[in-house]
Amino acid sequence: LEWRRALFCFLEAQTRAGVWFERLVFTAIFLSVSLAALGTVRTVQDDVYMEEGFFVAETLLVVFFTAEYVARVTASPEKPQWRYIKNVPLARAKYMFTFHALVDLSSIAPWYLARFLPQVDRYDEMFRLLRILRLLTLERHLPGMSLFRHVVKRGSSDLAVAALVAGVTWLMFTGLLYLTERSNTTVDADLPMSQRFSNFPSSLSYTLILLSGDYPLVQFTSAGRFVNFFMIICAQGIVGIPTAITITAFRALVREASLARTQS
């Protein structure tokens, strides 16, 4: 249908009006996220006039995003990957279960739930913060943002191996610190080290913080300090190896894109 094709081109910013609409969507997304963040401030929550102003602004934004969502569902059969589907409702159903469509729905559905289901109102603040998820849809408008996804996909096998090594290293040093610190009664930050490393599960979180390079705890036993010496060295590899894999994949993608432009 011509009108559906025209709507698709408009939503995909393939027309001059569509480009301006895309900019309007950008503005609305950042405004929605800003309102969600400011809504958590106590002074805003206690001010009746500001609360009413926020409610009006949120309502207008929800109406706008609802209209955009309905329009995208309506025009979805025109997407290249679903043009072969003759059943229009089926094509729309497939779109509704895509990542971007689910993010769009999750950012507007809570508002309607809070309005029409009073028992959901107590979770209103939590639902408001779901609007932050809409930032993930910026990839739809900015192709450059999808580059990271392609980088991760290209280096996925190497990153999986690095993650496995990191996990094994984490568990190994957790066990070692548990053995060296479980009897350490020295108080560090108002809590005995023996209480922090009293069991393996409790030791996991503290070891992970130490592996990240942050050292809020220093009152280790001599054996614990010896373990930490090697843990610091391993931590450099845990952080550095995935970084190197990501950079290598990124450079390869840029090189391929440059070669493709040269050949064309």
Rank of each mutant, 00 (worst) to 15 (best):
W3P: 00
W3V: 08
A6N: 09
A6H: 10
C9H: 14
L11K: 02
A13V: 05
T15R: 08
T15W: 11
T15V: 08
A17P: 01
V19L: 15
F21D: 03
F21I: 02
E22D: 07
E22G: 08
R23E: 08
A28N: 03
S34F: 15
V41R: 09
V44C: 12
V44P: 05
D46W: 15
D47M: 07
D47R: 07
E52D: 12
F54R: 15
F54V: 09
T59R: 10
V62S: 02
F64I: 01
F65H: 01
T66L: 13
T66G: 07
A67Y: 00
E68Q: 02
Y69T: 09
V70P: 09
R72V: 07
A75D: 10
E78T: 11
K79F: 10
P80K: 13
Q81W: 13
I85C: 10
A91D: 05
M96Y: 09
T98G: 15
T98Q: 12
F99V: 03
F99I: 00
H100P: 04
A101H: 05
I108F: 02
A109W: 13
A109F: 15
P110R: 06
W111D: 00
W111H: 14
A114I: 08
R115L: 05
F116G: 04
F116Y: 15
L117T: 05
P118E: 02
V120A: 13
D121V: 07
R122E: 11
R122C: 11
Y123D: 10
D124N: 12
R128N: 14
I132S: 00
R134Q: 12
T137S: 01
L138Q: 01
L138M: 12
R140E: 00
L142N: 01
G144A: 12
M145N: 02
S146A: 09
S146R: 02
R149I: 03
R154F: 00
V161T: 04
A162Q: 06
V165K: 00
V165M: 08
V165F: 06
V168K: 03
L171P: 06
M172A: 12
F173S: 01
F173N: 01
F173C: 03
L176M: 08
L176D: 02
L177T: 07
Y178C: 01
L179R: 13
E181K: 04
R182Q: 14
S183F: 12
T185C: 05
T185M: 10
T185Q: 13
V187A: 07
A189F: 10
L191N: 13
M193D: 03
Q195F: 08
R196L: 06
N199I: 00
S203N: 07
Y206R: 14
L208N: 10
I209S: 12
L210H: 15
L211E: 12
L211P: 09
S212N: 06
G213S: 11
D214Y: 10
P216C: 04
L217K: 09
V218L: 13
F220I: 08
F220T: 10
S222N: 07
G224C: 03
G224T: 05
F226C: 05
F226K: 04
V227S: 05
N228W: 05
N228V: 11
F229S: 08
F229R: 14
F229E: 08
M231V: 06
I232E: 02
I232M: 05
I232F: 09
I233W: 07
I233M: 08
Q236A: 14
Q236F: 14
G237E: 07
T243P: 00
T246Q: 03
I247G: 02
A249I: 15
V254R: 06
R255S: 13
R261L: 13
R261K: 12
